[in-house]
């Protein structure tokens, strides 16, 4: 298992380096931000000077070599826009995103587990159909649309939650709900499917046959067995939460990596874009390792292989 994990870690780091390289070149393709940071009517001399100071007029390969050299000791450069180290700019907001993602994911799994079990237990019944239909509908709503309708009704008309920003507990309701939409929809389906399969599988059946008629035990067996696909889909969805965080950041001005990255793209702040992608990528790599570890704990068979 350790060998497996370390192999995974090494290959993931290679992938991460690849990501940062791709983003470096993509970013440079958007052109020099000289006109964004210089006065209207700036002379060519001023533009050249700006590009020289920020190293934009060197050949691309030179910029790249310098970049790789810096990144090797975790220096992602200085943010042109925020005028502080890019890595600081990113790490100072990343915990906020992480917290939001953890809250949204935990609640999603909880809600999905309840709904999925309910649906599995009443397979093909009206409750099952309602839950399945509802969860699919959840996954089909554009998230920004849901968020804006939420602001209009809950904040402006009813006044029960604030429109935006991070303040007391009620300000978490809309952002978390927006982030939960898609994961709940998908996870409910996964839980339901996995539970049905687990309930029908050999050992639960045989446990029943052996007289373990106590439903509690049956469900404990089944739920443990169903945990594997749930964990992996949840892990996969957690990575997708970054997309949701961008939307939540834009609509609710929720502090976090989403707004910072969008602003960085708009402000042509390459250093922050690169640092941001690196940190997000690292987070996802660690998440995958965590998922694998959980796997090993939940399923002894994996540990052997």
């Amino acid at each position: 298992m350790l060998i497996f994990l370390s192999r995974r870690l090494v290959s993931s780091v290679i992938a991460l380096v690849g990501v940062v390289v791709v983003v470096f070149f993509l970013g440079r393709l958007t052109g020099s931000p000289a006109h964004l940071y210089l006065p209207q009517g700036a002379s060519q001399e001023m533009a050249d000077n700006f590009n020289r100071t920020h190293g934009f007029n060197d050949p691309l390969w030179q910029q790249f070599i310098r970049f790789v050299g810096d990144v090797a000791h975790l220096d992602f450069g200085t943010s042109i826009w925020q005028q502080r180290p890019a890595l600081t700019a990113v790490t100072s907001v990343f915990p906020q995103t992480l917290l939001l993602a953890v809250v949204a994911m935990t609640l999603s799994i909880a809600v999905a587990a309840v709904l999925g079990c309910l649906a599995a237990a009443r397979r093909f019944g009206p409750v099952d159909k309602l839950i399945t239909f509802g969860s699919l509908a959840c996954a089909s709503i554009p998230d920004f649309w849901f968020a804006l309708v939420g602001v209009l009704f809950l904040a402006v008309h009813l006044g029960v939650v604030p429109t935006s920003g991070q303040s007391d507990l009620s300000s978490w309701i809309l952002p978390v709900a927006t982030l939960m939409l898609a994961p709940v929809g998908v996870l409910t389906q996964v839980v339901r499917g996995a539970m049905i399969e687990a309930l029908g599988s050999g050992y639960v059946q045989s446990a029943r046959a052996r007289g373990l008629a106590h439903r509690r035990l049956v469900y404990r067996h089944a739920l443990r067995n169903a945990a594997l696909p749930i964990i992996s889909v949840a892990g996969d969805r957690a990575a997708g939460l970054v997309n949701g965080a961008v939307i939540v950041g834009t609509v609710f001005a929720w502090p976090g990596i989403g707004t910072v990255m969008v602003d960085a793209v708009l402000n042509r702040d390459f250093a922050v874009i690169q640092a941001g992608v690196f940190v997000i990528g690292l987070g996802i790599v660690l998440l995958n390792v965590l998922v694998d570890l959980t796997y090993a704990v939940a399923d002894p068979r994996v540990r052997v292989s």
Binding site: T106, L107, I109, A110, V111, V114, A121, L223
Partner: peptide, 14 residues
Amino acid sequence: STRRRPLAVAAGGI
């Protein structure tokens, strides 16, 4: 009883 488990998780989330 099976519903209680996920509910506990939900409570944890809250």
